[in-house]
Amino acid sequence: MSGTYTVPTGRPEAARGEKRSASAIVAAIAELGGESGFAVKAPRRVEGRVEAAALHGFAAALRMRVGFEHLSAISCVDWLADGEFELVYHFWSYRDNCLVSAHVRIPRDTATMATLTDLWQPASFFERDIHEMFGVEFLGNEDLEKYILTDWKGPPPMRKDFVSRDFAHDHFTYKNYEPSWDEMIDGGYYSGGQNGGQA
């Protein structure tokens, strides 16, 4: 594991200094160029949309130039009706005490995305999890092996078109957990018949 990535050590210059307000962070993001759709959503919450191709550059700038050091999580949402996956990157700034959520939409049938493991090692778990549960391919992440569902052969189970009830009906035989005692007695279950007389 540790040999796969270059783990950035040392804190970026931008992560030190005075605390800024959420609206100042929106302005700082706008200065990065290209990303103007960010707005304050709630106290200490900023969110906006980023094009899939621009995400890696945006994240690197957010880390090095705006000072967001902590990748809190990467979430994935399957918008089946739109034919898209939505990846939501949650970044936290220790300096400003503010969360930036960057929303990225990618097509569902060719679900690929650039990895962030070169910037944040914690991305490795989230990307591996999303790959396993949704089938999104993260280019540049060398450790996308199955983790939680090691023996799973079916489709990525968190996709909306995977219906667990249908899967269970198709793959498992029905077992009656409320048997009729009369039938069991008449059928010789307790009389030393085929099941060895468990009386």
Partner: peptide, 20 residues
Amino acid sequence: DKAIAWGATGPNLRAAGFAH
């Protein structure tokens, strides 16, 4: 520095001297 880079939080981060 590793605790921050590797995404440690809670008591593990605070035991490294970072009061988040």
